[in-house]
Design a protein around this nucleic acid. Sequence first.
DNA 1: CCTATAATATAGCAATGGCTATAAGTGCGA
DNA 2: TCGCACTTATAGCCATTGCTATATTATAGG
Lengths: 151, 151
Amino acid sequence: MSIKPTPETFQGVLVDADTQVESFRQTRNSRRTELIEDYVELIADLIADGGEARQVDIAQRLGVAQPTVAKMLKRLAADGFIQQKPYRGVFLTAQGRELAERSRDRHQIVENFLRALGISAETARIDAEGIEHYVSGETLQAFKSYLSKQG
Amino acid sequence: MSIKPTPETFQGVLVDADTQVESFRQTRNSRRTELIEDYVELIADLIADGGEARQVDIAQRLGVAQPTVAKMLKRLAADGFIQQKPYRGVFLTAQGRELAERSRDRHQIVENFLRALGISAETARIDAEGIEHYVSGETLQAFKSYLSKQG
DNA sequence: CCTATAATATAGCAATGGCTATAAGTGCGA
DNA sequence: TCGCACTTATAGCCATTGCTATATTATAGG
């Protein structure tokens, strides 16, 4: 089990191992759902904006190739977030709409929070895209309450 | 090219496509370096704490299996971040130390910032682990200046 | 109605990051 | 010094997320 010799004689750089492993585990978890959230959120936006979400549009927005989108859509369908008809557009299921709404809310709060801190619109947009997936409920709440105090 | 019919008649949910694609591209980029940063940062901490970074310790901290670590270390060595001697520990190169230091600084700032917002220690630790990799220089600066105003 | 263009589907490849099982090397204590 | 326990190396598997190339289907114009 590799017991370290008298850890208390060293600088306390390291936190408890069991504690740290939990953080990393959670991060890996978020990483797994990150792409799903991006897709569902984008699909919802495309539908809201133009009535339909086509593979070519999703691909163009995400900056990936169309077959990459096709493959991911199969997974989203298998996971119950969307419905697909061959050679037709995609539609969100109730579950998909629910996830999209949560994602969009969270995204908006994070982006607005960064803007409120004085960060430029462009940076806020870019950083929010990455950060949103790693923000817990507690942190989101803190962001919200900062925003409301700024009012 | 799929020209949308009169987009100005819809709710402005969507930002410009070229703009959005850049955000997603950047996010994918961060995702690629995320694991490398975690490894290098952890290796630096283990060396600072106990003088050496063994695969079993890295594996235990990250919550992954030892062969997973072995594979990643090969990649880190190929990328010039660490040096390996067979059946011996790993050592950071100058490049590795540089990355480790930057990562640790950024990590600390993000975690302290979350704490300053009133977020609990545990949540701050977990969220910082995910968020740190997606924080741009500008945002980091904003976090720092919030912290100094709090001081 | 037929054809050309656009969109979607499918096949197959590569890199990444996990895993288990097992081989090989190290080093300590009897 | 010899053997056992620990550590590292290696082999081979799987899932994910990207790609290119190509086949198939839809659809709009002439």
